[in-house]
Design a protein around this nucleic acid. Sequence first.
DNA 1: TATGTGTACTATGTATCATAGTACACTTAG
DNA 2: CTAAGTGTACTATGATACATAGTACACATA
Lengths: 123, 123
Amino acid sequence: MIVIDYQNRKPIYEQIVERFQMLIIKGVLEADTQMPSVRSLAAELSINPNTIQKAYSILEQQGFIYPVKGRGAFVSGNQALKEKKTEVFFGKLKELVKEGKEIGISRDLCLQKTAQFYEEVET
Amino acid sequence: MIVIDYQNRKPIYEQIVERFQMLIIKGVLEADTQMPSVRSLAAELSINPNTIQKAYSILEQQGFIYPVKGRGAFVSGNQALKEKKTEVFFGKLKELVKEGKEIGISRDLCLQKTAQFYEEVET
DNA sequence: TATGTGTACTATGTATCATAGTACACTTAG
DNA sequence: CTAAGTGTACTATGATACATAGTACACATA
């Protein structure tokens, strides 16, 4: 479920955060589902438990999961999360489109490619 | 001409590289224009000359500039650069659109926002 | 009671980034 | 020829982020 790319410049904890964000937003992990324990996930990925804990604390801070003392961490059922993620997405898109226009990409080509890429995505 | 954002996570040398890439691609710096010298730019930005050198060596490797011993560095007149940058841009766009679709952004909203952001860009 | 859970520490090693300083070969203005 | 400015190549040092290693505590549950 979680894969670490050691070629990636992003730190491990950040990769884990983003992966779980996606799984939760897409509904693969439903509300109140129990998350893998810090220690078990660390063992599974062969990394340090502290790294998992760091990822979980960020996910908790962002409202994606909630911890229960002595029991574990669970997926939060917050509908506002999707809206937040959407907001972040449009922020990125705006930056990228700005860059595209600056390097001389035409409006029409930009739209055409966007549509094309959208179709190409495999579910 | 060059501004360093110390709040940015990106390292200084990378910010300098990207800034010059943009200036060259947009044509602000024309072919065979002399680049600021390593030492003078370092002094102007109040950073270490080694940092500038690192940025310049990357720009040279990417074909954006060419060095002349004892004289300085100059802007390369390579037309292929724009195409390369365009290729990189579409790679990023594809990744972003994929993410958008995964979190449930509709095709139409994606296109609408892209067009909107394109219009909003100030030149 | 024993095990598994989240959480909070300290300490250590590593890699990247940036700085500091020095040095050399080259070009050019004087 | 000389001096100043150029790119280039080193070594050394410090700061920071990242990841690991190890320990410890309170809690829930079989």
